[in-house]
Amino acid sequence: MLRVEVTKQLGEFSLEASFSSEGRVTGLFGASGAGKSSLINMIAGLLKPDRGNISLDGEVLDDTAKGVHVPPHRRRIGYVFQDARLFPHLDVGQNLDYGRRMNRLADDPAQKKRVTDLLDIGHLLDRRPGKLSGGERQRVALGRALLSKPRLLLLDEPLGSLDAGRKIEILPYLVRLRDEANVPMVYVSHDPAELRQLATQIVMLKDGRVTALGGVKVLTGTTA
């Protein structure tokens, strides 16, 4: 269970959001500039809220009143960025292994095989990120985040930088991920169609405020 209740001033823009979610996939929906990225950066610990608190499964990650701020590397929250952010100096296999090494987790070949099979990236292991297509890069980024064994997975418009054809290529992997990987997700998107397919719960954000909460039906009447 993720609980968020934060305020943050970023220049002229003010973000004031509170929600809690228990679903498998929480869709964070809103136009660009609505504050979606700032909000998940706060969940990841990359951005500190001015005031408020964030907790995951009962563990307090941020509590400004008590001066608590758990740094990102101790949150065990995976993050798939829109631009993949694979490490250019490491090959795909080393990128996938990075989280396990940093968290000093034991090697888990079965898990690695499950994830590489799920995402169809087994044949890419020796390649450098520079030699991958956009869709392949995004699948590797998904695998890398999953293999760090996160308690929660944040996805910030993971299809945002892909063209329509590639989106259709990746979407089924995300559906499989939701149904098989057993990690709760927060999925950020400005595309209602994407969220209808993936999300189990919607948090709608507009101009830094939560305007609606509920099932995917709250998306009715919205357009990308």
């Binding site: 990841a44 590397h73 995976g78 960025f81 490490f87 990075y98």
Partner: peptide
């Protein structure tokens, strides 16, 4: 942003 990605994967500074 690569360094941010590393920190979300569990790497201390």
């Amino acid at each position: 942003r690569l360094e941010q990605a590393a920190s979300t994967l569990g790497a201390a500074p």
